[in-house]
Every structure is written in structure tokens, then in C-alpha cells.
Design a protein around this nucleic acid. Sequence first.
DNA 1: CGCAGGAGAGAACGCTCGTTCTCACCTTGC
DNA 2: GCAAGGTGAGAACGAGCGTTCTCTCCTGCG
Lengths: 196, 196
Amino acid sequence: MPDREAAQDQALGAAEELFYSRGIQAVGMDAVRNASGLSLKRLYQLFPSKEALVLQFLNRRDRQWRQALAHYVDSHTTPDEQVIAVFEWLHTWFSEPDYRGCAFINSFGELGGISPEVAAQARRHKQAFRDYLVALVTATGRPATLGDQLVLLAEGAITTAAITGSPQPATQARDAARLLMLAYSRHNRAHSDVSQ
Amino acid sequence: MPDREAAQDQALGAAEELFYSRGIQAVGMDAVRNASGLSLKRLYQLFPSKEALVLQFLNRRDRQWRQALAHYVDSHTTPDEQVIAVFEWLHTWFSEPDYRGCAFINSFGELGGISPEVAAQARRHKQAFRDYLVALVTATGRPATLGDQLVLLAEGAITTAAITGSPQPATQARDAARLLMLAYSRHNRAHSDVSQ
DNA sequence: CGCAGGAGAGAACGCTCGTTCTCACCTTGC
DNA sequence: GCAAGGTGAGAACGAGCGTTCTCTCCTGCG
């Protein structure tokens, strides 16, 4: 049984590339077999079913995505810069040549209606991102409300960049984020009243 | 040949409900047959293939969605109110019991990687929404830049509401939109400088 | 009244998918 | 050296898909 962990990683790597670029249902286990170099038998002793492979793919993707984001944000020092860094990182992500949106939004759209596990995984991922961004925002002394608004800008940029094929939404979202941060800055806070 | 148009509408109505709630690939032509009450033979003489049915479904959905939005917006008078009305309408949409996000984002995630036609249809729909919102924004005397930012808020609200299952993102997006409109109002315009 | 033609219901076909099985082969411990 | 068990390659299987075909029935017109 040579290196179960390495084989799993190889399978998940191949599955990620295929699932992300073509969608999940359009990719058969034969394609994963060919791309990973593993035999079907080995694949099925590493993952009991395709659904298990899909869930582990989402799990791995969640870990890697959040880690890459946090790594970039950590390279910035002030809290305000760290919030803006999120949108800068989005821009580099959108610029990847085979960028095709958020794997969790895509999976939710494709399977969320028929697979509660996939829907739950998407929910967890988005919740984790929201918690992370809200923490960055509250570290600047601003309210969580702003964090939720910035989440919407980021999510909107993710799907708009995917469909238009341009990284520009990241810049637009960053500019809007700057304006909202200004609106919520200590100096302006007393004057802000957006209630009807 | 009794009423080809009515039969098409019946088929498209059934297809819409199934495709939207369960995804496209998960719905077979048999399911469309059962839901529409049409025979398979009739279905195939109305639409030459499943792909044609899918594209017409997206076409119809685009028309109906934009018409419903425009109808709600038109019931408001001032340009500023009309912009905000977009987010109010989103809230009522998100509150529908079987809301499951934007059919075009979902279709793009599921089939955009393997069907250029589906990807193009999603692009067209989002472009039309963007043009509409930008027109509403410029009618208030504010720049198109703001329109693009509000598009991101709306798109983010659409997916966040779908995944979390709550209509609350519409309210958060509306509040953020109000703040951005304030930031871009004539009074503040000279002082806004968000460049790095 | 008879018959041609189209419609409905669903069986059938070819294909692909997820999953399992076969079988020859290779390793490995005694 | 050899039995035993695990492996790889791919065939096989059952189910489900999109699509087409069959067959029966109904309809409407001469």
C-alpha cells in the first residue's frame, strides 16, 4: 500500500482541475482515473464513491483557498491595509488564466438542490470567509455591519469576474470598499444614518 | 397541431421549475415530460434537443426576470428611489420559498465550462442587468462607476442569499448602496479620491 | 363510411456513467 | 522458491440518459 496519503493528494489534485474547469457532473471517474494516473480500483479504495471524492475535493479546496488568502493578507501590516488586501488578492485570483469563479458557488448551483452535503459544504466555506473578513474589519475599529457589506462586494466580484472573464470587478470592489470604509471611519460615524 | 405556442410555454414552464430547483444535468427529459404533461414526441418536435430546451429556458427566464424587476422599479418615481428599489425587489425575490440563486450563475457554474452557448447566455443576461442598473444610476446624475459597484453588491447579495438561505443580504446591500450613493452625491463628489 | 395522417404512450436503442469483477502480474515474508 | 495477497489495466454490469421508433388510437375530410 504505497503512500496512501500521496495517492489521495494526487487524486484530489486531478479531480480539482477537472471538476473546477468542467463542472462536477460532466467529469466521470474515468477522467479522474486518466488524469490522476491511478487505477479505478485504487481510486475506489481511497474514496468509497464519487460523492466522497467530491466532498473531499471541496474540503481541500476550502483549506487551500483560505490559506492562500490569509497568507497574502498577513503580508500587510495595518488593519486597514489588510482589509484592502483581500480585494487585491481577489484580483490576482481572477487573473489566473483558467479562473472560472468560486468552486463552492458553482458546486452549489450544480448540486445544491439535490445534495444536502454539497450545500452544507458551500455554506461552511462562505461562513468561514465571512467570519474572516468581519474579523479583519472589526480589527480596524469598524462595525461587523461593514464586514457583511464587504462580503457582498467580494462575492459579487467573484461571480462577475467569472462570467465577464475580466479581473476588473476586483478593482471596482476595492474602490467601493474604500468608500464604505471611509463612510464607517470614526470621523464620519456619527453622521451615518442609512435607515429609511 | 393544437397551439404550438401554448405547448412550448407549458414545456418551458415545467423545465424552468425543474432546472431551477434541481440543476440542469440532474433533470432528464422524462422528468420534463411528466411535469409538462406533454409526450416525448411532442417535446422533441417543439425543441430539437435538450440543449435547445435549456437555451430557450434561459432566454425566457432572462425576459421574465428583467421584466419583473423593471415593473417594480417603474412603480417608483425619483431616480434615487428607483436605484434603491432594485435592492428592495431583490429582497422580495430572495424571500420566495424556493429561491435558489440566479439561474444564470447556476447554469454558468454547471455548464459554462463545457457549453459556450450557455456561457454566452449568462454573459448576455448579466450585461443587460449591468446596463439597466448603470442607466438608473446615471439618471441620478452619478457616474457609471457607481453603477458597476452597485452591480457587485447586487450579485453578491444574490449568491449570498442563495447559500445562506436568508433574504438579509438584500438589506445589507441596500444599506451599502445608500452609503455609496451618498459618497457619490454632488455634495461629496469633489472630495472623493479612492486612488491608491 | 373509410381512410390517411398525426398524436400519445411508452418501449427500445445506443451510449455513458458509477461501480465491481476478472485476471495476469508483481511483490514479499517464510 | 513459493504461496498469498495486493495491484494495475481494463472488461463487465446495471442503471440512467437523450433520442428515436412502434403501435395504437383518434380525428377530420372526401
